Simulated scan of single mutants.
Amino acid sequence: MTAAQADLQAEFLEMPEGLRIDRPEVSDGAVLWRIAKDSRTLDLNSSYSYLLWCRDFAGTSAVARDADGAPVGFVTGYVRPERPRTLLVWQVAVDGAYRGRGLAAALLDGLTARVAGERGLSVVETTITPGNTASERLFTSYARRHGADVEREVLFEAAQFPDGPHDPEVLYRIGPLFR
């Protein structure tokens, strides 16, 4: 990790009191699935996919734990194979009892600082459906905190989804990071 990355990590890892960021474990998969389901805004994946995610992508994902070690929020992501300095953030969710405390932002900052330190990172990508104001605010404020630009373009049109009505997914590309 460079000195600049260490400074960013120290600056952006402010967690709400009593909570900590950790890597997810397979045993967290069921709770992450429940948090995603209870969010009522995320596309819910199968419970099996959350178990696999916690096993195969723990290095590019993060979980917030309460004082007892129980997951209360998460961010899942992966490094794009053809762009190894780009982290695609798949989902961010916080248990209803812990919302409004800045936990999603702390998780995102903590995860990107860790990935930057371990692998190098210059860009964060995510997709957001139009009207998802909470996600739009989360990622645009992330870009501001990190002094990065945000580019937006439709990645998948509504008609491309085979399983019925779905809003388009807009790609947010945030970078450059960790200059």
Rank of each mutant, 00 (worst) to 15 (best):
P71M: 04
A36F: 09
Q160C: 14
P168L: 10
E151K: 05
R83W: 07
C54Y: 00
D109W: 01
A143N: 12
A62F: 00
V31H: 04
L87V: 14
V94I: 09
V63W: 01
R85G: 04
C54P: 00
R137A: 14
Q5Y: 01
L87N: 08
Y172H: 05
L8P: 08
E157K: 14
E17A: 15
R80F: 06
V75T: 15
R83F: 08
T140I: 15
E125F: 00
V89K: 02
L8E: 13
L107Y: 02
L171W: 08
E118G: 14
L107Q: 06
A70L: 09
R40I: 11
K37Q: 15
I128F: 12
A62L: 01
V31L: 12
G73I: 03
Y78P: 08
I35Q: 04
G29C: 06
L19Q: 07
K37C: 10
V26L: 08
G29I: 07
A113D: 03
E17Y: 08
P16Y: 01
L42P: 03
S39G: 03
P168M: 05
D43Q: 14
H166Q: 08
I128R: 07
A70Y: 02
D68T: 12
P81G: 14
A113F: 00
V89N: 08
V79M: 15
P24N: 09
Y78S: 12
L107H: 06
A105V: 05
A143I: 12
W33S: 08
R20G: 12
V72E: 02
A3T: 14
E169D: 11
Y98T: 03
E153W: 09
V79D: 02
A106V: 01
V115K: 06
P130S: 04
N132V: 09
P165N: 02
G147H: 06
S47W: 13
Y48K: 09
V89W: 00
S46I: 09
A104V: 07
P81Y: 10
F74E: 02
G59S: 10
A158D: 13
A6P: 08
S61T: 12
L13V: 10
Y98A: 10
A70K: 03
P176C: 01
L51A: 11
F161T: 02
R34L: 13
P24Y: 00
D28N: 10
V115N: 06
D68C: 12
Y48G: 01
F57W: 02
N132L: 13
F139E: 07
A58M: 00
L138T: 04
S47Y: 10
S135E: 08
S135A: 14
D66T: 03
W90V: 12
D95W: 01
I21V: 15
R23L: 15
A64I: 03
I35W: 04
H166A: 00
L121A: 09
G29Q: 09
S46H: 08
I174M: 10
D109P: 12
Q91M: 09
G69V: 03
Y50C: 06
L171Y: 05
W90M: 12
G117P: 13
L8K: 14
F12A: 13
R179W: 09
L111G: 14
V115P: 11
T76S: 15
C54T: 06
A62G: 10
V79G: 07
G59V: 04
V31Y: 03
D68N: 13
C54I: 01
G73V: 07
W90N: 15
S61Q: 02
D68V: 07
D95E: 15
L108M: 05
L19I: 04
V31I: 11
R40Q: 05
E157Y: 07
R23V: 11
L171Q: 06
Q91E: 07
